[in-house]
Amino acid sequence: PTPPYLKWAESLHSLLDDQDGINLFRTFLKQEDSADLLDFWFACSGFRKLEPCDSNEEKRLKLAKAIYRKYILDNNGIVSRQTKPATKSFIKDCIMKQHIDPAMFDQAQTEVQSMMEDNTYPLFLKSDIYLEYT
């Protein structure tokens, strides 16, 4: 069978589908001061999994606000810098109107994912961390 570390080189999704791959990628991103990109990506996926229903509306609102405050609000943060102004306004609007939709972070997640695919992921595959691991 193909060793997991070779699968990680196939696509960003193959890497993010494996716990060891995620851990190694996170170590690399931490060195680059960019671990928030990965945390935000998973936070968006986790948020989308929370089904809207009466019993967890408060939790969803709290979580949406926490994601917004940590990653989007600070314009100097790496996630905020990789997210388009229109996307940030849309999220801010959803929070202000308490319109908490499972897909409200989807566009921001896509923008951050594109940045990882074009930039940090190829750099990771060439990094000492990955090469030493293989």
Binding site: D17, C44, F47, K49, K59, L63, A66, I67, K70
Partner: peptide, 20 residues
């Protein structure tokens, strides 16, 4: 805001693939 951080960590963990 510790409760924010807890909430975020649990959310991130829920989206991670389960270990084989």
């Amino acid at each position: 805001l510790n409760s924010d951080e807890d909430l975020l960590q649990r959310c991130i963990g829920s989206a991670m693939p389960k270990r084989q």
